[in-house]
Each structure stands twice: as structure tokens, then as C-alpha cells.
Design a protein around this nucleic acid. Sequence first.
DNA 1: AAGACGAAAGTGGTTGA
DNA 2: TCAACAACTTTCGTCTT
Length: 306
Amino acid sequence: MADMVKKCPECGGINLFWNREKGEIICRDCGLVIEDKMVDFTQEWREFDSNESESRRRTGAPMTFTQYDQGLGTEVGQKSDLFKLDSGDRNKFFRLRKWQYRISTAIERNLKLALAELKRVSSFLKLPKSVEEEAARIYTLAVQRGLVRGRSMESVVAGALYAACRRHEVPRTLDELSEASGIEKKEIGRTYRFVTRELGLTILPSNPADYIARFASALKLSAETQSNAIEILEKAQKIELTSGRGPTGIASAALYVSALLHGEKRTQREVADVAGVTEVTIRNRYKELLEELKLEKEIKKTKKRK
DNA sequence: AAGACGAAAGTGGTTGA
DNA sequence: TCAACAACTTTCGTCTT
């Protein structure tokens, strides 16, 4: 792996920065701009980027991605190096440094704003710190790869948060993200897919059971109802009733059934609202649950008890 | 009157030729 | 790249409680 890491031909430094839009690679140590067209290292650079970010996480002092510059400055060029250069190179050096300054400050400004927005949305949704960190990491990577272009900063922030939630198994629905960020649901979904694909993030399909606790407490259902709903879910998963279906629909149907069985009836509309699906979807899932899990008699029994 | 049910038509995304 | 397709939504009429 080590020999894949490219070094700056000028100073041998490995602290290279890839500006994708401009097609430039810039050495942070000496300010040299390496033209991208010199060699097509596209694949290697991608590797380099992710390896770099991986290794950063494992080594050195703890870093946080929720600070816009990751706690590291990107001050470019040292005045003390200048005496080595003749006047022509010196001008060039200043020009390059100015460019790098513009580029890096643009990115840092963007990150600063974006991370403030990220924190705002994250605290609105009461997300754990670990998720916020992950989202900040994803966003930072996205910016470095130039993925924010053509998209609003806010939507990428929302997409990063959504992805981070999924990875940490504390799923929020797209509707919740949408409400918290003020970005349209489909826009968030779009950027979410785009960013995760471009960054090669693997996201597990979300588990319906992860939603149960939150929905149940929003509906003020008892703990028994909640755990019974999870049992129903597990049975449903065994007979592959859950594959291909929206996890929120399944979770809400399981909760609805469970609430009926425990005499804590909620209307389909109430359940539908907190789960962010329609009554129709709940009905469909509910019907499937009754058929496949043979719960009809139990429902009838509960009814008679009234 | 409210809730439950289901049919029909529309939407956005995935898949496979 | 386009068409078929599945899941889900919206809307609306009917039945049940």
C-alpha cells in the first residue's frame, strides 16, 4: 500500500491536496501544483484519499471532524523557504500560494458553514454525538471530492446525516430529516444515494425493529406492546415477509397489531402519522401479517373480551 | 361521525434488455 | 437509454362500529 502513496516531486512531502474541479493536485508542504493531466492516476488518487482518511482516524492525536478544519491548519508555504528561489520562481510561488489560499479558504468557509448547519439539524433530531461525528466525516469527504457541486450545501448535510444515522442503526426517516433541515425529501434521498455511492459507503438495509422504540414512545404504548411488536417482526422476517418492503411500513404495522392485541388500540391514522407512512400501507402490511402469521383468532379473542 | 377497508390512478426509483 | 415493474401514496367511495 505504501508505494501507492504519491509524493510531491519537489519536496517529497505526502501532504497532497486534490482539487478535483480544477484538476490540480497541490502539495501542502511546498505549494507545488501538480497538473492532473501529467499522469492519469485517477484510481490511485481515490485510494490515496480514502487510505489517508482511514489512517488519520487511527493515528496521532484525536481529531474531530465537527471542527471545520479538523483541528489542523492548512497554512501554505513558509516564508523562510523563499530564499532558496530566484525571483521568477518566487513570483510563481506567490501566485501558487495565492491560488491555494483561495481554494483552501473556499473549502474551509464551506465546511464551517456546513458543520454549523449539521450541528443545528443534529441537535434538532437529538442525534447522538457519534452520529454527528460520522456525518461530519462524510460531509468532509464529500467536499474534498467535490461532490457538493451542483447541490445545495444543506441537502448534502442532510444526506450525510441520513447516511450516518443508517450506519449507526439509529434510523431517522427521510421525513424527519426533511422537517429538521427544510430540504425536500426526494432531494435528500437523491444526494444521500449519490454521496454514498461516490464515497463507496456500504449501508446496511435498515432494520424495522430499529424504528419500533421510537414509534412506540411517540404513541405512548406500553413496554409489553413494544416487545411484542418486535416478536411479530422477527416472525415476519423469518418467512421473508419483510424483504423488499419499506421498513417503516412493516414496523408500523407490527406496532398496530401489537397495540390491538394488548387492548391499547390506536387508529391507523395515528400510527401512520408517527411512522410517516399512509394508512393504506399499514393496512397492506397488517393484512399480510394477519394472513401469514395466523393472528386472526387472537384478534377476535381480544375483541370478545370487550 | 369516525374509523376501517379497498379499488384505481399516479409518483419516483430500480432493474433488465 | 428506455420500458416494465414493485412499492408506496393520494384520492375517493363504501362498509362497520
